[in-house]
């Protein structure tokens, strides 16, 4: 097999693996931090505010988890992580309230509860794995996690705000129908359920295409090599 073909296959495979890693994310697989998507993704402004808070809290707690990994038992690490997340939440809340002064009226207590999002405790648990915990892979994981969370918030909040309020980012947009019920938690549960099913369906299709595509390319290369080998023998 030619080296250039192997390199091209590896590059495509990495892109495919990157897309597939979204489907293997703890938010998609385990439902970590989903309550915030279900309850607060009722408008684009809410989505932006909660995503910003999520980003800041998770980056700080991820770094802290790496620093205290192996130095304290899990029950202490969990408390330290949540305590640090609480402090960071207060600072982020102040920033968000400065940027969007009326956002607290819409987010209510959820802006405070983000300090207890499932990823904070999951990061404490992750640190129990044997061996040294490296910062870069953890940071890479955090980037993917926050990106998935932000995209989910955007996808769920956009139709809910448009259909529920007839607005987008607080600006009135004519809507064909107004369904105030979509702002309630039950619609959040149902829409997130469908979204997760769609992500799972898509990643399975990509994975199947990757297997079929890789097998087809490998078979073509073998056939080509065999033909060349036969020509040389002849």
């Amino acid at each position: 097999m030619r080296l250039s073909t192997i390199r091209k296959y590896r590059k495509n495979s990495k892109v495919r693996q990157g897309i597939l890693s979204v489907g293997r994310n703890p938010i998609i697989l385990l439902g970590v931090s989903l309550p915030f998507v279900i309850a607060t993704a009722t408008s684009l402004r809410n989505a932006a505010a909660m995503s910003l808070e999520y980003v800041v809290i998770n980056f700080v707690t991820a770094v802290l988890s790496v620093l205290i990994a192996g130095k304290a038992p899990f029950w202490v690490r969990a408390a330290i992580n949540v305590g640090a997340a609480t402090v960071v939440m207060m600072l982020t809340r102040a920033l968000i309230t400065w940027m969007m002064p009326d956002i607290s009226n819409y987010l209510g207590t959820y802006i405070y509860l983000m300090a207890l999002n499932g990823m904070v405790l999951l990061q404490s648990e992750e640190a129990v794995r044997p061996g040294p915990v490296k910062l870069w892979p953890v940071m890479k994981g955090v980037v993917i996690n926050v990106a998935v969370f932000a995209v989910m918030m955007l996808i769920v909040s956009l139709p809910r705000e448009y259909l529920g309020n007839g607005t987008l980012w607080g600006r009135a947009i004519p809507a064909p129908v107004k369904l105030s019920g979509v702002q309630l938690p039950f619609f959040g549960f149902i829409s997130v359920g469908f979204l997760l099913a769609f992500v799972r369906f898509t990643t399975k299709k990509i994975q199947a295409f990757g297997i079929v595509d890789g097998a087809r390319k490998a078979a073509n290369e073998r056939a080509r090599y065999t033909a060349i080998h036969v020509e040389i023998d002849e």
């Binding site: 989903l34 279900i38 549960f189 149902i190 997130v192 359920g193 469908f194």
Partner: peptide, 12 residues
Amino acid sequence: LPVLLIYIGMLS
């Protein structure tokens, strides 16, 4: 998880 969330939504 997807069908469980839909079920909880209906129950809610």
